[in-house]
Each structure stands twice: as structure tokens, then as C-alpha cells.
């Protein structure tokens, strides 16, 4: 369902951030992408939600090449990809409820659906009583769980988690990994980047290892090896 075809991406004039990458991901997979800082993990993900475009090669989502999508199709595609980041990226002037509702509104859900689904998804990430708090009133772990709730509330086909545990303590890290696994069990494809060995080993699924912009390992039942 996701396919990188001989993709190279070079930032303005410098060394290629990723070079000649071919990678296929099937529906329902849980793929951990590991590597040192600067190995190209984030660049690889950014091309999936069209924040970056490859300088050579193509990226496919479903049967469509992302670079060929119209503005409208691009928005629709983004609504079909949930994203979670190291720095949470919540809307600071909106409450937890509104943050999640915003993603639903953007996807065209009506008010009744929103009122029903938001408490439900907060339950799923274990934050049912923080609905009316603002992001600044929450701990890092709680904020990340809100971000995950927002990412999955529209039941996307793919969840992208870019270093989601980078700012969290070990307990919260474990919680977040558990939530990601649960989401994957419900059928969502999960792409996780991390350089946390513990996280990768506790997931125990497919591991793709990047080094200096190239894939150096791709293990079906991988461990963190670098």
C-alpha cells in the first residue's frame, strides 16, 4: 500500500538525505524505521505526507503517486494518514476536545459524530478526564496521548509516528508503544521511527535500518542492531 520506488532526496545542493531507497509496506504492517540522527528517517516519512517531494524516484500511496495528486486529493490523502511527532504538535489555544474535534471537522464529520467519538477515542488512549484541559496543562506523556487520539480518530489507513517517544520518560514511552500496538492490532498500518533500542525490541515486528540515507537491513522480526 506504500511503495518507495528508487527514491532519492537531496536538500538544496547538499548530500542526499536519502539515496536510492526502494521499500514496500503492506496494509496492517507495523514497521519500525531505525537509524542514527541524520540517517534519513524523518525525510522518508515527510515524503509520505507530501511535506517533501523526492528529487528522483516516486512514492506511491495506494495506487497513486503522491507527487501527481491535486491539491484536493492531497488534503484527502492527509486526512487518511494520522501523524504523531516527538514535539506533539497540538493546537495550543484549543482544548483537548477541540484538538481532536478539529481533525474530525476537517474530515467533514458532523457534530453528532464528533460528540460521540471524541470521548471514545480519549478512553482508548487513557485520558477520559482531560477533555477540557488545554495542552499546556498536560504532562508530555498526556500530550502525546492526545496527539495519538487525534491521529487515529478518523480511522486512518496509516499512522505515522516520528520519534513519538523522544520526549518521554520510560514509563510513558512504554505506554505509547502499547497504544501503538493496540492501534495496529485494530488494522491500522503503523510506521514508527525511533532510535530507542528498548522501543524497537519491545515491538518485535519488522525493522528497517537506515544508515547515511540507505537501507542497510530489513528484518521481518527485527531487533535494534546498529
Amino acid at each position: 500500500m506504500i511503495y518507495y520506488d528508487k527514491v532519492t532526496m537531496t536538500y538544496n545542493g547538499g548530500y542526499p538525505a536519502i539515496e536510492d531507497i526502494t521499500l514496500g509496506i503492506d496494509p496492517g504492517e507495523f514497521v519500525s524505521i531505525v537509524g542514527h540522527s541524520g540517517a534519513g528517517k524523518t525525510t522518508l516519512l515527510k515524503m509520505l505526507f507530501a511535506e517533501l517531494f523526492p528529487t528522483a524516484g516516486s512514492v506511491y500511496f495506494g495506487s497513486r503517486e503522491i507527487a501527481s495528486l491535486s491539491q484536493k486529493e492531497l488534503l484527502e490523502m492527509r486526512r487518511n494518514i494520522g501523524t504523531v511527532f516527538q514535539d506533539f504538535r497540538l493546537l495550543p489555544t484549543k482544548t483537548v476536545y477541540e484538538n481532536i474535534a478539529f481533525a474530525m471537522e476537517v474530515a467533514g464529520k458532523d457534530d453528532d459524530e464528533i460528540r460521540a467519538d471524541v470521548p471514545h477515542v480519549l478512553e482508548l488512549v487513557g485520558l477520559p478526564d482531560k477533555m477540557w484541559s488545554f495542552p499546556r496543562e498536560l504532562s508530555g506523556g498526556e500530550q502525546q496521548r492526545v496527539a495519538i487520539a487525534r491521529a487515529i480518530v478518523n480511522q486512518p489507513d496509516v499512522l505515522i509516528a516520528d520519534e513519538p517517544t523522544g520526549n518521554l520518560d520510560p514509563i510513558n514511552t512504554l505506554d505509547v508503544v502499547e497504544i501503538l500496538k493496540r492501534i495496529n492490532d485494530l488494522g491500522t498500518t503503523v510506521l514508527l521511527t525511533t532510535h530507542n533500542k528498548g522501543v524497537v525490541d519491545s515491538v518485535g515486528r519488522r525493522v528497517v535500518t537506515l544508515d547515511q540515507g540507505r537501507i542497510i537491513r530489513d528484518d521481518k522480526q527485527g531487533k535494534y542492531v546498529l
Partner: peptide
């Protein structure tokens, strides 16, 4: 001061006028 917020809205797939 809201530019990050605008970035997040784009990411979630909000249309231009939204």
C-alpha cells in the same frame, strides 16, 4: 506567533479556507 498552529492544521489536512 501562530505559524506552528497553521503548520499543524495543514498536516491534519485542513483545507485552505478552514
Amino acid at each position: 506567533t501562530s505559524r506552528d498552529e497553521i503548520g499543524v492544521m495543514n498536516l491534519v489536512g485542513a483545507s485552505r479556507w478552514y
